[in-house]
Amino acid sequence: MAQLTIPVDDTALAAADTGGSGPAVVYLNGAYADQSHWRRVVTELGDGFRHITFDERARGKSKQSADYSFEACLRDVDAVLAATGAERPILVGWSYGATTAAHWAARNADRVGGVVCVDGAMPYGLTGAEGEERIRQLFHKMRFLLPLVRPFGMAARMSAAEHAEVNIEINAIVDAIAPVLDQVTCPVRYVLATGGNLGGGDEEMEAARASLEPVLARNPNILISAKVPSNHSKILRKDFAAIAAAVREVAALTAAQH
């Protein structure tokens, strides 16, 4: 496996590329996570695929930046693809990364093979003044915990306020994602959890997942591959086999189309 350092804007991303001739799979992390969370999915899929992982800005081993915006994350996908030469990749995103994958696919229909969204990219978010205040309070309460969980890939090298701003922005983006999903023309498969998570109880998370139903009715390219028993935080660890199955499903559809 090749370890890469990829320059982009004012920063540099830590990445890894297994190489190989199989379909390229690019993994997009949760908002504050690092590439280590994909280990089980990569192992389950095996060496029939080319696996490309990377840490977003200020996550994992990547450098810090003056720009942690969603648009910066989209530029980072471009930088990773340029550096690795991967063509028509399958984008596999968890949480924040699922939204990144959906937006990138909608903007780059001729460059993407397919998308797997893992418990993310659902048209539901905490928005408005009340939602923003709830998010800021949550991260303010967590400000002393964030540095402690950072070594485990659960926080970024950001202040609590910067963590909150990333979360506020992505909530507004997912709340408005339905028209973006309507535009996607490649195969998209969702793997959804069923439980709650930090910051969102069972009922709230189920409402988020139910928000997909009108999108599924409008766009035949998008289907739910599996609903699994774990929650948002544990899905990569507990249900890696279902995620790998969704990747294989998308890979087969992509191969049949080309």
Rank of each mutant, 00 (worst) to 15 (best):
I224Y: 09
E213T: 09
M205P: 00
H232W: 10
V215T: 07
L212K: 01
V188K: 01
K238V: 05
G200P: 00
C186L: 06
T194R: 04
T194F: 02
N221Y: 00
H232R: 08
L198I: 09
P220K: 08
K238F: 13
E204T: 05
K234A: 15
K234H: 11
H232T: 02
P187T: 03
T194A: 13
I222T: 06
V191Y: 14
G195K: 10
E213P: 00
N197G: 15
L223Y: 01
R209G: 04
V191L: 07
I224F: 07
S230E: 08
L198D: 07
N219C: 11
K227N: 06
R209S: 02
A208W: 03
A226P: 12
P187C: 14
A207V: 06
L198C: 08
R237K: 12
V215H: 01
I222Y: 02
M205K: 03
G200K: 00
V228Y: 07
G200W: 02
R237C: 09
I235M: 03
R218W: 11
A208C: 10
A226L: 14
N221H: 15
A207G: 05
S225A: 14
R189V: 10
L212E: 02
G200R: 05
N197D: 12
L212F: 00
A208D: 04
A217Q: 11
E204R: 04
R209E: 07
V191Q: 10
G196D: 11
E206L: 13
P220G: 07
Y190N: 13
R189P: 10
K227Q: 15
I224D: 12
E203M: 10
I224A: 11
P214T: 08
A193F: 05
R218K: 15
R237E: 15
N231T: 02
P187W: 06
M205G: 01
L212T: 04
I222L: 13
E206G: 05
V188S: 04
A193T: 01
G201W: 02
G199S: 08
S225K: 02
A193Q: 01
K227I: 00
V215W: 03
T194P: 06
R189G: 13
M205W: 04
K234W: 09
S211F: 02
I224N: 08
E213L: 14
V228M: 09
G195W: 01
M205L: 14
G195E: 14
I222V: 13
A226W: 10
I224G: 11
S211I: 10
L212R: 01
K234Q: 15
G201R: 07
G200C: 04
H232C: 09
G195D: 12
R218T: 09
L212G: 00
S230T: 04
G200N: 07
E206K: 13
L192Y: 00
A210V: 00
V191P: 06
G201H: 07
S225C: 03
R189Q: 14
S233Q: 12
I222C: 11
G199R: 05
Y190M: 11
K227R: 15
C186H: 10
S230C: 04
L192A: 02
P220C: 06
P229H: 10
A193G: 04
I235D: 03
E203T: 09
I222E: 08
L223D: 12
R209D: 08
E213W: 05
P214Q: 08
K238S: 09
